[in-house]
Nucleic acid binder design. Structure first.
Lengths: 230, 230
DNA sequence: TGGTGTGAATTCCTTCACAGCG
DNA sequence: CGCTGTGAAGGAATTCACACCA
């Protein structure tokens, strides 16, 4: 039992850190556009909405890119985080389901910050197939496998009704896609090695409702968050 | 002498648990529609996509609603979770920003599972104001405060461009809203006591890209292969 | 001096393993 | 028995606090 895993693997960045890197990246880009050459962990943390100790710890997983007594070089840090996230290459994305949500996604300008290319929009509804959306022609779902292969799609986005989601997911996986972003309110079953992330409006609303109720219960004041030490 | 208050949260259900309750609820509703009267933690966990120990631990925070040797009564558990999440009452929601995303949200049928009522759709664009969307007339953003007061809005949804989000958020907060669901890619600043949850497409894509890159690198870090148990 | 990088302490979450009840 | 509920162990993430360096 004397294994020693205290080293966060040369290449092993904690999940929680990975989930925050995009936040830092966005904050840095905002600073960069404003012409700011360097930032301290305190400033950057404040812009990104986290505390500075967490930010420094997160960045330390990437390497020592800061300068003591000074801070971080904005452009250099943008590059390092981008590289770590894999944004220095382009990823092809296919969106299935071209309803309002699919259109919203397709029109999501710049797609965050480059690094992603919408390779295809697919739908099952003949009334939608052929439409021009965000400069692309909507294709038929039947061409999914062909499109994935031709466009080297590596991320599949599912914006279909719940009932269709698992079927679309299976086809993505069958076609070799190993990353799926799911907007349909269902739990997708996928084999090991396939990553699924889900975005679910109603779950977020329900979490808010829980806290809202909590606040309403604790009539009396703002101490609902504070210690209830007797 | 500075003993930190050890208990910031006394009667609290862990955040991680709260975030999963909606999943269990959805799984239970699916089972209920299929006519299943009872489930074991094993079955329910499988449907919800978590492991059974976690599920039991989560449910134990609500109380002892299961029967040893049998499992959980589906309908009863639905009721208990709904109550805990505050879904036995209706929450009024106002959506600001009626682009494709706002429309997608407005048309999100049943809004998860009842418990939520879209009280208003607001936009700043005169070309959109007056439109009928999801059975509602789109109002002008100027009426935000009035609408919040009249409809007792408790959850504000921001589906505007990034540049407008903080302003809308400030107006929500000023009008007394204490829960905000933000779809715009910015970090919102809010006073204590206001809950913000964010849904961010590009962050999710970037997290997927990170893992996708990791898989492509292949050599060295086969931690995602570790699930070769089965 | 000012601010990074990081061991150590702390808190939070997950998983194990089994006592005990229906 | 079978399955829940839960202490206890194990891990992960956060926060503290300060050594150390540009």
């Amino acid at each position: 039992m004397t294994r020693r895993p205290p080293r966060p693997r040369e290449r092993g960045i904690p999940e929680a850190t990975v989930a925050r890197l995009p936040l830092y990246l966005r904050a840095l880009q905002a600073l960069d556009e404003r012409g700011t050459p360097t930032v301290s962990s305190e400033e950057l943390a404040s812009v990104a909405g986290v505390n500075s100790a967490k930010l420094r710890k997160d960045l330390s997983h990437l390497g020592s890119y800061g300068t003591r007594g000074v801070g971080y070089d904005v452009e250099y840090l943008i590059y390092q985080i981008s590289r770590e996230l894999g944004l220095t290459q382009d990823w092809s994305v296919a969106i299935v389901g071209v309803g309002n949500l699919g259109r919203a996604l397709a029109n999501y300008g710049g797609f965050g910050t480059r690094g992603f290319r919408i390779a295809a929009l697919l739908d099952a509804d003949p009334a939608v197939v052929g439409d021009a959306v965000a400069g692309l022609r909507v294709g038929h779902i039947d061409s999914l496998e062909e499109v994935v292969a031709r466009e080297h799609v590596s991320i599949g986005v599912i914006a279909t009704p719940a009932a269709a989601a698992q079927g679309v997911c299976d086809r993505f996986v069958g076609a070799g896609v190993t990353s799926v972003l799911n907007f349909a309110p269902v739990v997708l079953n996928v084999p090991d090695g396939v990553d699924v992330r889900k975005v679910d409006l109603s779950i977020e609303l329900q979490i808010l409702a829980f806290h809202e109720q909590r606040k309403a219960d604790g009539r009396g004041g703002p101490e609902w968050i504070e210690a209830l030490e007797a």
